[in-house]
């Protein structure tokens, strides 16, 4: 009992060291821009960079749009498959896993072939078209996580019976979906949204190849050309991730429904 406890502590300490030492090192380095003393100059430099603001804002907006449209795609699909087409569930699961198997660069080259300026749907002809294409790419990338998160949340409620109960009370399908199903899979929607946000904020390949001013390519650019700012950016990225996680915790704590029972 005593010794297993000791081992647990040692394991935890090793894990924490592995994780914290580089973080502390990065943080320490990010403070050393001014010679001979610690300062937040690197952060000041990052925040005052117009390109930082522009790319950060752009990726944030893309993240939010990806979440909204992704959920509008995933929740009704997962619902419909559970309700009416349970036999094709393995197929859907396989399809949603594909983005994990196929490298992003392959996907984006596929897109470019399909939607280039001389194709039947020349999305890349205009800026907004390319933005749209990028958002769809992000949706594809986040599909494995979104679908699984939502589908798991749906497993904890009896979708079929709830639907029938609502129907027998006179409800039509938009009401059923948005008032009876959606709120009950909110935990899945939120965790899917969080992961999606994290993916979009850091994604490099697709944004770079579609030549959009996203945060990922900016991180790469700064990393290749500056000394102290990349460390400051890394710390900022961490802060954002932790903030999202904290928000997720708070939201799920204030959720009114029961903690999901197995």
């Amino acid at each position: 009992m005593k010794s297993s406890r000791l081992f647990a502590w040692i394991a935890l300490a090793i894990g924490a060291t592995y994780f914290l030492v580089p973080l502390i090192g990065t943080f320490e380095f990010s403070l050393r821009m001014r010679r001979g003393e610690y300062s937040f100059d690197a952060y000041q430099s990052v925040f005052s960079d117009m390109q930082f603001r522009a790319t950060f804002g752009y990726s944030m907006l893309m993240g939010l749009l990806t979440i909204v449209f992704g959920m509008l795609l995933v929740v009704p699909t997962a619902y419909w498959v559970r309700l009416r087409l349970p036999q094709i569930r393995p197929l859907i699961e396989f399809l949603t896993l594909l983005p994990l198997v196929i490298p992003a660069i392959v996907i984006v080259f596929g897109y470019l072939r399909l939607y280039n300026s001389s194709s039947f749907l020349p999305l890349t002809n205009s800026t907004n078209g390319t933005n749209l294409l990028l958002m769809f790419s992000y949706m594809t990338l986040s599909l494995p996580y979104m679908y699984r998160a939502v589908d798991t949340a749906m497993r904890s409620i009896d979708v079929a019976t709830l639907t029938e109960a609502a129907e027998s009370l006179g409800a039509k399908w938009p009401t059923i979906l948005f008032r009876c199903i959606f709120p009950n899979v909110m935990s899945g929607v939120l965790s899917g949204a969080f992961i999606t946000f994290a993916i979009v904020m850091g994604e490099f390949t697709m944004a770079a190849l579609l030549n959009r001013p996203a945060f990922g390519p900016y991180l790469q650019f700064v990393g290749a050309n500056k000394a102290y700012e990349p460390s400051a950016l890394a710390i900022i990225a961490f802060a954002i991730t932790w903030l999202s996680m904290g928000l997720l915790q708070i939201v799920s704590r204030f959720q009114k429904t029961a903690p999901v029972k197995a």
Binding site: T161, E164, A165, R179, C180, N184
Partner: peptide, 10 residues
């Protein structure tokens, strides 16, 4: 009315 109650949890 269903065997499993089927109240809306939210």
């Amino acid at each position: 009315v269903f065997q499993a109650y089927a109240l809306f949890p939210n």
